[in-house]
Every structure is written in C-alpha cells, then in structure tokens.
Design a binder for these strands. Structure first.
Lengths: 337, 337
DNA sequence: AGCGGTTCGGCAAACGATTGCAATTGACAC
DNA sequence: GTGTCAATTGCAATCGTTTGCCGAACCGCT
C-alpha cells in the first residue's frame, strides 16, 4: 500500500515504491542496461506497462548530457518567401522527419532570419539540440564556414564548394545545368535564356553548368533573367521580360516553380510551349507532371538527399570521418521541351 | 582565480564562481525574476554575455516541469503520400513554425502512421511536449475524441463536427463547397462532377456543401469521382474517368492538386479548360496562379489558420475557455472557370 | 543603543533520471 | 567456521536549473 495516491505513476520513484525496489533497479530494468536478475527485470517492465509508465525523456536527456533532438533550420536569407512556397524544401523536410524519427531523434523545426553573424552561434549555445541540418545555405556561407570550424555536428543541404569547410550534401548542380543545355541543343534551340537568382549558390552553379554545356560561341548569347523564387516574384520577372520583347526559343529555369512561372507568363504573351519555346525546370517536384504541358526537368532525388544528410550527421556525431557528397541529377523528359 | 579551467563557462555554477556570488543570484539575474539589486543584475548579465553563456534550456524545463516544445503531428492515416506532396499542409507547417517560435516554443515535427488506437496516448505519455497540434484528422477522429477527454492541450486542424469533443480550427468546408456550386451555376454549367476522396472528413464536407449549393433536382446528377490526394493517384483517377467517356462541363475538385490533375488529364483527352469545362479547386496554394489556365479556387487562409491554432492551444495551456473555430473561405476567380 | 522594517542574496531541496561503488546474499571449497 | 567469488541490488552523487525560506546588513527613528 502506497502512501500517496497510487493512481498515477509519474516517475521512476513511484514505480520503485510500488515494485518494492530501489529507483536504480527500476532504471536498470527499463533501460535494459546493467546486470539485473531476469525475473526482476521482467516484473518491473510488466508493472511499468500496466501503469502506462514511460521514462521522462527530458530528465533522461539532462542526465545523459544530450537532447535527443536534431534541428532543421531554414535560413530565410535573401528570399523571405521562398521556403513558404517551395515544394522542394517542404518535401525534403518530410523525408528528414521520417529519417530522424526512425533513428529515435526528434526533429526541431525552425525558420531563421539570419541577423548579423552570430545567429547560429546563439542557437548552438542554447544547447537545445545534438546536431543541426541546414536546408539551403542561402547567403550565409561565411557564417556557416566560421561555425563549422568549432562545431562538428552540422550538415548543410546545398551546393558544395572547395572554398567552404562545412559538410554538404547536394545535387551536382553543374552537371544538371549542363544536361539542360545539351537537351535544349538537341531540340534545336539556339536562342536561350536562364531564369533564376544567381545570388543563390545553388542557382549560380546551375547557370554555370548550363553555360559550360554550350559551345563557346553560344555562351555570350544566353540571356540571364534575374527571377526570385516565389511564384509571385518569378511570374512578375518573366512577365516583364516577355513584355519587353524577350522571345527565346529555349528556357532553362533555376527551379520548377520558376519554370511554371515562365510558362504561365509566356502563355499570357501568346508564346506557346513547347511549339515556340522549350522549357526545362529543375527539381522535379511532384506537381511538375501536372503542369500544362507537363514539365521537362532535372530531377533531384530528395529522398536520397534526406537520407544522406542524416547519415552524414550521425557519422559526425559518432566522430567518424565524413566527406561532402554530390548526388547525380537526372533528366526527366516530358512535353514542355 | 578559479579552481578549474575558467575558459568555458558551461553552467550557472561556473558563472557564479566567476562573479563571486551564489548560483541563486545568477539564476535570478538571468531570468529577470525575483528581487535583485539592479547593479548586481546588470553586472551578471554583462558577465554572461561576455562569456557567451546561455541558460541550459533542458535543465530549466526539467525544473519547471515543462518542455518548451509543441508537437505538430501529421497523421498519415489513409493517404500515405498525401503530406509529402501537398503544398497546403507544408505551407501550414511553415506558418506554425513562425507562430510558435515567436512565442518562444520549439516545434517538434513528427509524421505518424497511426497504429492501433493508442499511438497518441503513447506519444503523450513520453512527455516530450507541452501541447499538440494535429494537422488533419485523417481517419482518426475516434482516437482523437477519446484522447481529448483526458488530455487538454490539443488542437486539430480540420473540419468541425458536433459529434466530436475535440477542439478544431478549420475552414468552413460546407460554405466553400456551396460557393463552388453557385459559381459553376453562374457560369452556366449543368453537368457537374466532384473529384475527391470523401473518406476524408474535410473533403466529405466540401462535397456535401457542393450538393447543398445546387438546386434539388441537380443533386442526383452530380458525378462523384473518387480520387486520392497525391498527384499521381488523382491524375490516374481523372485519366480513367475521362477515358471512360466522362464529359462534365463543370468540375469541383477537393483540392488544388486534384484540380491540376483533372486539368492535365482533361487536356490529354482533348477537353479544353475553360472553354469546354470549368474547373474549381480548393486551397489556393501559391502555385494555383501559375497553372495553365490559372486556377479558380476556394481560398483557405492558411496564415490565419496557423495563428488561430496556436492561439487556441495557448488558451488551453492557460486553462482559458475555448471553442472550435471555423474560418470563412473565399472564392478566387481566375481563368479556369 | 535598541528596534522594526526593507532589501539582498545564500542555502539547500527539489525536478526525474543514470551510474560508480559498495553492501548483501548465497554457493561453494577448504 | 571461515574465506572467496559472483550475482544482484541499494546508496548517494550528479546533470543544470529554480525558488521557498531565512539570515545578514542597513536604514531611519525613538
């Protein structure tokens, strides 16, 4: 007979009282660690189950000096609205949630507006997480580089650059850009345009790859149209471009969302895709197959990317050696080109 | 002169030693609670800043008996792939992240495959969060109802029903459906079809509202096409329907993604939108304005929804009275109808 | 000098777990 | 009867905070 209301078992202490053993014994029974009589362990585990008792994760983590959570950060550096709408980042987030849950970690989501150069340091020192995954380096590569020097468990989704010390997983954007170029050439397109914000490292690499896939004499002819990532902004940029008389016969867009904007704006100006103009996107978001016409695009394998990000992070947590990884993109042919 | 390496200040104890005061004083200084000499407080705060010290959130939470985190759960009940791709849920997630961060709470993201009827109880008993937001009741309303009886801080995004005890925030789906019906009638459409999975409570309400917006004699004529939510599945359903000779002149789709599938499949079968067929979607996801033709749709205010969800949850945490809320939808006219 | 009233800041007990160490027990051999 | 050893379990310190309670110091007043 317990002293207090035995109805609810809140702590290991309560359970110990009921079981007539010490808290250490209960702890050992429930964590399956340490030597303990088989029979005792079984008894306590059954008792715990009967009372619907589970260990308090917060206390456990405090004692063990860990948090059991991984942060996924979305820096909103130059494009405030980007991650709100970009299906690519969101799909990535979903896969990351799955991968982390599977490993018994929680996923702490945070969107950050990078302020100054110590937002990341502040976050790390708060000690809320055991590791950090950053989706998109945005314009923060200097900050990331600095932090990476003294903080290990951090992996970034995005373009790899030899200049940067931090660990990345990302699609080979240069190769992807080159694929798009070759494809448009094969389709006989010669008057080409690239739509995207080359201030974003990933997009810059796609643009550079695009140029590198063209014969030298064509490179100077490519029109670069600066388009932000949100649907609204990229539509505006494209509409302005067409209104100003732009009439390319081949377009490579930095993302599928941008490609959709371009097609919409072009249609508005009486320019038919793919009859008069071929369009190639980047990402292969799920909706790309539903556009009218369905979108030819350079596919990034999001699921594989998420898995690699998590793998790499856990190697880091286990102090194993790691290297940045580039994933090969793939051309997906549909009717827009 | 400190005994140990004074280089890193890890705990309040270290800081107390350096400052020459007791830990209680440091705690009071840093939390701005309790009476403390202004000068002392300032001094300690400066010292903390100088050493880049921040309170350990885990320990703080343990002591305070809270976790500082709110869970956002995505139940994948009947539609495995839904949340992966559905831009609506993802946009919601983004706004929730902002709202919670603003209130100083962390957002713990988890996608759950509901197993049996105690997955939610198990999650709650793990004690990792102070409250729960569930996006979409999926087919779990029985479970939610049971849990709501003994667990307060939980709010669900989705359709409200008088049958359910749990707290919801959601669009008035019935009104939205009726809007779509009236709009199609105004456009002179008489041969109507609804695309969607009416096993999902929200979609069922949209369908019901749609019917209620029609004159009685038309209701029986409406074709109900069962389409799942993923782009692939809904495209297949629509393609099969058109291949089977379906030729409606007005379509109301349960979501924008479904509407896009319908337009794509229709185009494939030589059916032009909006000339031969008007299409109305639901959600107004950012991409809806970029479809070809741009999509007429019933808009849900996601940002307001997220804010209300969080507001309601915190009222519950503060034991204030709350009631479920329905948000008025809005018809957004574009060229698909 | 003595007294009541403020302020300030320290002591130590929590929060709910883990774990090194030591104590207890029983079996067994000498 | 005593010593040894292994198996099992308990004690108590610890993780980094918060906070009720109490004592010390100081103030002005009689």
């Amino acid at each position: 007979m317990a002293q207090k209301d035995p109805g609810t078992v809140r702590s290991i202490t309560d359970l110990a009282r009921i079981a007539g053993v010490s808290v250490s014994t209960v702890s050992r029974a429930l964590t399956s660690k340490g030597a303990l009589n088989k029979e005792t362990r079984r008894r306590i585990q059954e008792l715990a189950a009967a009372h619907g008792f589970q260990l308090n994760v917060a206390a456990q983590n405090l004692r063990l000096g860990r948090t059991g959570a991984i942060a996924v950060l979305l820096p909103l550096g130059h494009e405030r609205g980007q991650h709100l709408s970009d299906p690519f980042f969101m799909a990535m987030l979903g896969f990351l949630a799955d991968e982390l849950t599977e490993r018994g970690y929680d996923l702490l989501l945070s969107r950050v507006l990078p302020q100054g150069d110590d937002w990341l340091d502040l976050f790390i020192r708060a000690g809320r997480v055991d590791g950090i995954i950053i989706i998109g380096q945005s314009n923060q590569s200097a900050v990331l580089d600095k932090v990476a020097r003294h903080y290990g468990p951090m992996v970034i989704w995005g373009a790899h650059s030899a200049r940067n010390a931090y660990l990345t997983v990302g699609t080979d954007n240069v190769a992807g850009g080159a694929m798009a170029a070759r494809h448009l050439l094969e389709r006989g397109r010669r008057s080409l345009a690239f739509f995207g914000n080359v201030g974003v490292p990933e997009f810059a690499a796609r643009y550079q790859g695009f140029l590198s896939g063209l014969p030298e004499d064509m490179r100077a002819q490519v029109t670069l149209v600066h388009a932000h990532v949100t649907p609204e902004a990229s539509y505006r940029a494209a509409a302005d471009y067409f209104a100003g008389g732009g009439r390319p016969d081949g377009v490579f867009a930095a993302s599928d969302v941008t490609a959709m904007s371009v097609m919409a704006a072009a249609a508005e100006h009486g320019l038919a895709t793919p009859e008069q103009m071929s369009v190639v996107g980047f990402d292969d978001v799920p909706l790309a197959q539903l556009t009218n016409p369905p979108l030819t695009t350079i596919r990034q394998d999001i699921r594989a990317g998420a898995r690699l990000l998590v793998d790499l992070l856990f190697r880091r947590l286990g102090s194993q050696p790691c290297e940045s990884i580039e994933i090969a993109p793939e051309l997906v042919l549909r009717e827009s080109s």
